[in-house]
Design a binder for these strands. Structure first.
Lengths: 175, 175
DNA sequence: GGACGCATGTAAGTCGTTACATGATTCT
DNA sequence: AGAATCATGTAACGACTTACATGCGTCC
């Protein structure tokens, strides 16, 4: 994901590696972080594959400025258009960049994602009903308090997320 | 985390590697998964370091049963006692096993974690106020809709989580 | 003059996943 | 008879992080 996020940050304009890291921290830092150990090698790869250009600034600090090429822009947008996936919170990082995406793809992807997430919620709720049932048979319920609580976390989490997704779509694209 | 989760699952009793994977999927599967590529090597390491014992069942399927040793139990509990950390959802996996932890450590760790999480929420809220202020100066607000929404996600997420943590402590340890 | 922020970079290590390989048993 | 499930295992690869190494500029 490092490479795509770098490209995404460069959509704003020319930046140094250092700035890319800072901007990332200040924006999607809660969901994704880049370390220098992955940032600089990634930038090198992106230059090699002509996704970005490198420009030396001879300002004595060895600072370099990176800029998106058209190929880089296309590559970023093509990543952005892909369906949202829930692993590693990639979806949040992608949605962060969704202002760059066309409305059609956006709405389609968000609705598909909502559908998948609500399916997960349904499954958790189904399990919850079964477990709650089983628990009535058991005398020492307290021994399973934390296990149960983590299941409840799942429900609350997905409900919150679905709510958020719902507002996200409603407010922007249907009014 | 693989090794600790294996130990945690074995707290219930003897199991095969296959069963450990299944149980993990069915319980904390939303937050943590084990692949065979990490499971079996981990079991081997745990046998070597005498955390678990391996028992062959000659039931023709080459099935092996793994059982916690006292050292393994201690190692697991010592991991469980450590402060909760928010990386990689380790905290949810740990809390899942919290029925095994003594009340004192439990309450202390949960309260400390809540404190840290609420500090994060405060920081997000502070940023939100500043950004909301800045946004009033800008004409094309709509261009930042998704960026803003991801920030709101952060707030809603932490609020939900703090709520959950609050209930978790209140219901169990103070009434 | 010393701490902090700016700025780039590498080597080694960590912690996993994916894909492959194999084979028995049970269900339909 | 064929699919699904039970059952174990390895080799190659991936995507990072951590720790180290270096040096300039600026603020106090």
């Amino acid at each position: 994901m490092v490479e795509q996020v770098i490209l995404g940050m460069l959509m704003q304009g020319k930046m140094s590696g250092y700035d890319i890291k800072k901007t990332t921290e200040q924006t999607v830092g809660l969901y994704f972080t880049i370390s220098y150990g992955s940032l600089y090698p990634a930038l090198k790869r992106l230059v090699e594959s002509a996704m970005v250009t490198e420009e030396e600034t001879n300002n004595s600090k060895n600072k370099k400025l990176y800029e998106l090429t058209e190929a880089g822009r296309q590559s970023f947008l093509s990543w952005l258009r892909e369906p949202l996936q829930s692993n590693r919170r990639e979806y949040l990082v992608k949605i962060f960049f969704y202002d760059y995406l066309d409305q059609d793809t956006r709405v389609r992807n968000l609705q598909l994602f909502m559908y998948e997430q609500s399916a997960v919620l349904s499954r958790i709720e189904a399990v919850e009903r079964i477990v709650a049932q089983e628990l009535t048979q058991i005398p020492n319920k307290d021994d399973y308090y934390y296990r149960m609580s983590v299941m409840h976390y799942g429900m609350q989490f997905y409900r919150m997320e679905l709510n958020w997704l719902n507002q996200l779509i409603e407010k922007r694209d249907f009014e």
